[in-house]
Design a protein around this nucleic acid. Structure first.
Lengths: 215, 215
DNA sequence: TACGGAAACAATCGAACGTTCTTTTTCTGT
DNA sequence: ACAGAAAAAGAACGTTCGATTGTTTCCGTA
């Protein structure tokens, strides 16, 4: 056998990418063999090299594309919002929903950074820093306007992102709580955590809204 | 050559364990080869088998011992405290300090679970569930007493633990902020996030205390 | 319908893997 | 001083790995 009937380069490329995400998520990058990947797609391992330069570049492509997508969608979610509290809530909601629906990609992008070669890792770290910068700026703006009480925006950014991203460690679509309910709970936690108690009704408002969303 | 001068079984065993933690943390369990580990300790790879049954059991031993230690020290940190808010603060402080000083162990225990064989993984997951149960109980007790406003203790537990554990992704001993400062910031975030606003001075108190600790 | 490029196979490479086994050297207790 | 135990070397095992290459088959198009 050689070229198989009905074979199509574009479709195969997509299948490889998809299977790659699945297998790296399940077993880890190092533990996934190219023979395993090839079998998942229905190829011989050597044939994979029509579609990527080497194993490393497959990983990097997956991570880079994911980061690009994350950044673009985040910008979209925040577009048009100026009030820091509005932007914070939008960020929390976006981040949670994105991470709930793309567990595998997120897991890979966060956990397999160490498997990237230095140059590639540098690029990815820079991208992530840019993404974290979004929340950092929101917190700084909010603090400057007196809406937030943030002792250290950098630390708060790390803390909040860790908290939100952690959802992909246990969230299951068929689970007890809906996406909306979870977003409400987390939004409540985050806004209560950073809101300036004396700043108008900010906090009470957040709790009330969270309550309403759960109803 | 065979047995080397000054060789000592106990010392070598400790060195292997220590190097194992370091290398698994740096490269991941799958990516760490036994030849690499042996070289780090100054042995030939075959000689390692005097000290463990196989590669898998090395990983399991590391993770199990870590979990035992974590659980024991957590119990210790909470001993004698009955008020939910006191227990919550103690939990946060303990968890952060523990994770700041044992990054590698924590990282391995959290990330290499998937590399464990089914039976071993089951044991570790059960241990982790028990540890999470500590915080879950604290939140439920606090809510029952009206001190906390917790919509869903299970979710809040996951959220808080994710947030706290995330510190080991970026904390460096030589960093800008001291351990005490970081504990104060995180404690502030957590207590503000779960405290019942109308419950006495709980929240204001927490903020004030955090402020004081930073001074 | 013939041809050139695309797609995949099949065989193979050297290196590295985890593991086992035998041998050699050092240490320790009497 | 000596025997046995402990500690490690070192060679070898069968596998599997990522990667390369030459060949074969299919497809789109002119």
């Amino acid at each position: 056998m050689a070229r198989t009937v009905g074979s199509n380069g574009v479709r195969t490329a997509q299948a490889i990418r998809q299977a790659g995400v699945k297998l790296i998520y399940q077993h880890g990058y190092e533990a996934m063999s190219l023979r395993q990947l090839a079998a998942e797609v229905g190829l011989q391992s050597g044939s994979l090299y029509k579609y990527f330069e080497n194993k490393q570049s497959l990983l990097f492509d997956i991570v880079r594309d994911h980061m690009d997508d994350l950044m673009a969608k985040a910008d979209e979610a925040l577009a048009g919002l100026t009030d820091p509290m509005d932007r914070l809530k939008a960020y929390v909601g976006f981040h949670l929903r994105y991470h709930m629906t793309r567990k595998a990609h997120v897991f890979i992008a966060n956990m397999e950074i160490r498997s990237l070669e230095d140059e590639h890792r540098g690029e990815v770290v820079a991208m992530r820093r840019r993404y974290e910068g979004l929340l950092d700026t929101i917190l700084r703006d909010g603090a400057a306007q007196g809406a937030f009480k943030v002792v250290d925006p950098r630390v708060s950014t790390y803390a909040i992102i860790s908290m939100l991203t952690g959802i992909c460690m246990w969230y299951r679509p068929e689970g007890r709580l809906s996406q909306d309910e979870l977003v409400a709970i987390y939004t409540d936690l985050v806004t209560a955590g950073v809101a300036e108690p004396e700043a108008g009704l900010a906090e009470g408002q957040a709790r009330a809204e969270a309550q309403r969303a759960r109803a």
